[in-house]
């Protein structure tokens, strides 16, 4: 069973975001098939769909919260986790994987204390595993935002991430 990853990151939504969402929902809720556009609007405003945001959608659309949550967890376009300042992607494509990307990914998880798809509670780092990013010659590869790090071993991870932790 793949676990649904719920965020532990404290909610930082603002009153402006909430009023913007409620305003957008006021027209969306009159549409037939309003749930998907409502969730897209919400994610567009907050970047992710934590319980606080789903409760607003449930209230405005007069739908049970579980109906919202079931829909959010069905579609891969929706995320329950915010994105951190630095997005750490570890390629688990075939070439990277056979060159030891699994160990690099494990080292990243350990260093950041989060698992695949999650965000650190200080919102600094998000961690995702990706498929081939097209630079197999550098395998195994990790990216942090737009920076690419290649030919890694697991022991490199701590030092690379430290530079961002200090940033």
């Amino acid at each position: 069973m793949a676990e649904i990853k719920l965020t532990k990151v404290p909610f930082e939504g603002t009153a402006e975001q909430e009023s913007k969402l409620r305003q957008e929902l006021a027209s969306i809720k009159t549409w037939e098939g309003n749930l998907m556009p409502a969730l897209q609007a919400a994610q567009g405003i907050y970047g992710y769909l934590p319980i606080e945001v789903q409760k607003i959608v449930a209230e405005e659309l007069v739908l049970p919260l579980e109906k919202i949550f079931g829909t959010v967890t069905f579609y891969s376009q929706f995320t329950l986790n915010p994105r951190g300042k630095f997005l750490v992607s570890v390629c688990l494509g075939t070439a990277c994987y056979v060159k030891g990307a699994g160990d690099v990914f494990d080292a990243s998880k350990k260093k950041l204390g989060i698992s695949d798809g999650e965000c650190t509670t200080d919102r600094k780092f998000s961690l995702v595993s990706t498929r081939c990013i097209g630079c197999c010659g550098l395998a195994p590869v990790m990216t942090v935002n737009e920076h690419v790090y290649g030919k890694l071993v697991a022991d490199d991870v701590s030092g690379i991430l430290d530079t961002y932790i200090k940033a």
Binding site: I4, I51, I68, G70
Partner: peptide, 20 residues
């Protein structure tokens, strides 16, 4: 009452409550 539904997708689909 509507507190249960289908969560996740495909092989991972399971009946559960909001936010598990």
């Amino acid at each position: 009452v509507s507190v249960i539904g289908a969560n996740a997708r495909g092989f991972d689909t399971h009946i559960g409550c909001a936010f598990e």
